[in-house]
């Protein structure tokens, strides 16, 4: 084996071999890259096509039901006009917007309080509290809905007044979702706190003047996820609104447009238009803050 190698390793052969190897690598890389590009293009199509269909169908004028083709024969804004004038969509949109804003504010405060405390302060019962919340989290949240509905109904916070009720439901137990931001606070060096304490700051000052200015990414991540949550929630929102069209959020409202076969024929394109109207602001906001979202998601998965 070794002799063979010796024999063949004359300069020309080596040069030739190098060339061949080089050529082979490039060729195989080109092929594999082509395959990958092909897969990626197909994926792009598969992932984007439903949304493109959604937009196209929202502009269809000639029929309002479901059809077997995609590109409208007649284009127009009729569905959007109908959506805003003939349904309670503006009300649903405002409901959801108010709920999302209030939830984002409250939930961010609650989650940050919880995660900061668990991450950077040491006190008796800390481990117990964490284990307790872990166990609580194993109960399906849906279970609490029955009683919460009855209690909120007694407080007149359901049906047409569902906004305060839903805000309470979303924000109140959000403290249990502290994991991602605790992971963030865990990574800030402890010496920051110690230095501030040596300089005579009390713990509240440490939080407000030292840690909070460094926490911009996690604050934005929490705000973003808390704001986006109410737009997609279906179970609680439909339970609390209880078929009252004034108290629905966009998910429940748009679903009510197409809940029966008869109404699909009438409202299908309107539903598509509604989907587009809801998706655009959320998507724009999301793309602007994408960086923070990605950081949060990645960190959260690693920390568990």
């Amino acid at each position: 084996m070794a002799e063979e190698l010796l024999n063949t390793n004359t300069p020309e052969v080596v040069e030739h071999k190098k060339d061949k190897r080089h050529m082979g690598l490039t060729a195989s890389r080109t092929i594999s890259n082509t395959v990958i590009y092909f897969i990626l293009v197909i994926m792009t199509v598969v992932w984007l096509v439903p949304f493109i269909f959604l937009v196209l169908q929202s502009f269809r004028v000639e029929s309002t039901g479901m059809v077997g083709y995609i590109i409208p024969e007649q284009w127009g804004f009729n569905n959007y006009v109908n959506l805003f004038t003939n349904t309670k969509f503006p009300k649903w949109f405002m409901n959801t917007f108010i709920i999302a804003l209030a939830t984002a504010a409250l939930q961010t405060i609650i989650v940050l309080c919880m995660s900061y405390t668990l991450s950077r302060l040491r006190f008796g019962g800390r481990k117990f509290l964490m284990n307790f919340m872990l166990v609580l989290g194993m109960f399906p949240g849906m279970l609490t809905m029955i009683i919460l509905y009855r209690v909120l109904a007694d407080l007149h916070m359901t049906q047409q007044n569902s906004i305060p009720g839903l805000i309470l439901v979303y924000a109140a137990s959000s403290g249990m979702g502290y994991y991602v931001s605790k992971g963030f606070f865990d990574t800030l060096p402890k010496s920051l706190d110690e230095a501030a304490r040596v300089d005579g700051a009390n713990r509240a000052q440490v939080l407000l003047k030292v840690i909070l200015p460094l926490s911009k990414p996690i604050v934005i991540y929490t705000l973003l996820t808390a704001f986006m949550g109410p737009w997609g929630d279906f179970a609680f929102a439909s339970y609390i609104a209880f078929n009252n069209s004034n108290g629905m959020n966009v998910a429940v409202g748009l679903n009510s447009l197409i809940s029966t076969p008869a109404s699909i024929g009438k409202n299908y394109t309107m539903f598509c238009a509604g989907g587009v109207v809801v998706a655009i602001p959320i998507t724009v906001l999301f793309l602007f803050l994408q960086k923070y979202y990605v950081e949060g998601v990645t960190g959260g998965a690693v920390k568990g």
């Binding site: 984007l48 949304f51 986006m228 748009l254 197409i258 299908y268 539903f271 989907g275 998706a279 999301f286």
Partner: peptide, 24 residues
């Protein structure tokens, strides 16, 4: 670009994509 395409679908509220796919 490839990543953004995929991330875009996270941004769109899930109930829209789910209800739409259901109808598809």
């Amino acid at each position: 670009w490839w990543r953004t395409v995929l991330v875009l679908t996270i941004a769109i509220p899930q109930f829209i994509s789910l209800l739409y796919v259901n109808k598809m």
